[in-house]
Design a protein around this nucleic acid. Structure first.
Lengths: 227, 227
DNA sequence: CGGTGCGTTGACATTTCTCAACTGTTGTGG
DNA sequence: CCACAACAGTTGAGAAATGTCAACGCACCG
């Protein structure tokens, strides 16, 4: 577990002795697919680091609709900002894959350690700032980019196999969830992929997407109008 | 200037000696309305605290359109996350009011101080986290809420005079800028206010808005459909 | 004054959502 | 091993929200 913690961006630069103190507050908890990790409004009993599996963080709007905020995988952490500021969870979190293993770092103890060990803060500021910038990016994206542009940007950010010609991409989540992440209706996602496939820009095979013309895709990502 | 710094959420909990070290890196710079503070992509020479006036932070999308990210007023700070992570400005910033006074905290020196003084990090983590949560809020808003709901939420968050009956609100920026902030077209903003005025929910007089029926406005803020 | 730019209004185009139906897959219990 | 339920995904038709374009009044500033 020390290894897992040491690999997290938050703790990467932490000296061993301090890392051990953090580890003393941590335990591994395993979740089943669909199982709730925490609910919006609850006091922040811990923050979390994903060891394996995947987690969806979402909010419920007053009229009951669900908005995906993050889709996180192994190596990511979440709820640290909530713990360090307001002290209660501002969203819901559920495991989306079976055998999702989380490292839970106990909140109260961590806060105490955090206040007595300023080095802990220094090590976390960089990664928190980074996350902040990525959110700024996302705000911009949601504001100006059309559904098509958001999808194109998303696909281009995904790790791809095949350097030269067609790139091979695996969607890291179900299309329905991807649609939620991009803030579009599942039907719209389906139609976009269909249209692009008809134009020979991509080839879709379930969750596998082959990018046949990265140029055009990049153009779609850049202009606000729909593809 | 020590006072200004000490009032900032970032430095509120800082001991005097350390505050003085930060102050030694700071200088006050005055900007005229419309003057550029920094541009996207530049190395992060400093971060900023607003002493008076107002600042607009925005990005330019590849096709030249402008997306407002923040509209900040006295007491707010900006560009700290950029300095602490990527080291270059991820957006443009301009002063929007004449006599906008900024406290500029020199970047290189601050980073050095930051690394030698862990207490600095502890004092900033809380406010960074807070900001992070507000961005999460904004992502959610942009994703699920209609234009009308976003406007209603915005109005309700603004400080208002008049406790009991009709609330009196002053828009802190021009309607055109407000539209950009809400990610809607200026025409849509105009039409929404018109419609609400016709229904007796608000009374608009230039930049002054009187909320005549807060109940209805709150309902509009909660449902995703348009008012 | 005359210009510059904001705010408003109207007409129209477009994107995206909603609703509904249908298909295919997956997992479960008999 | 099959039948069935549940659900993701697709497709179509129509509706709704919002953007675009254009014209105009109006205030502010030189």
């Amino acid at each position: 577990m020390l290894d897992d913690l040491g690999r997290s961006p938050h703790f990467r630069s932490l000296p061993q002795d301090l890392l051990a103190k953090v580890a003393a507050l941590a335990r591994v908890v395993r979740y089943r697919a669909g199982e709730t990790i925490f609910s919006q409004g609850e006091p922040c009993r811990a923050f979390f680091l994903i060891r394996s599996g995947a987690v969806r963080v979402y909010r419920l709007s007053p009229d009951g609709r669900e908005q995906a905020l993050h889709h996180l995988r192994a190596g990511h952490s979440f709820a640290e900002a909530a713990l360090l500021s307001i002290g209660s969870f501002p969203a819901h979190a559920v495991a989306v894959e079976k055998d999702t293993e989380l490292i839970e770092i106990e909140g109260r103890g961590f806060l105490a350690l955090f206040h007595s060990e300023p080095r802990l803060a220094s090590s976390m500021v960089g990664s928190l700032s980074m996350w902040l910038l990525s959110l700024v990016e996302r705000v911009e994206e949601l504001s100006v980019a059309s559904a098509g542009a958001r999808l194109a940007r998303y696909l281009l950010k995904l790790p791809a196999r095949g350097a030269a010609g067609p790139l091979s991409i695996e969607l890291p989540m179900a299309k329905k969830e991807l649609a939620a992440h991009l803030a579009i209706a599942p039907e719209t996602l389906s139609r976009l992929l269909r249209r692009w496939q008809d134009r020979g820009i991509v080839a879709v095979q379930g969750g596998s997407i082959e990018v046949r013309d990265a140029r055009v895709l990049e153009a779609l990502a850049d202009r606000e109008e729909d593809g």
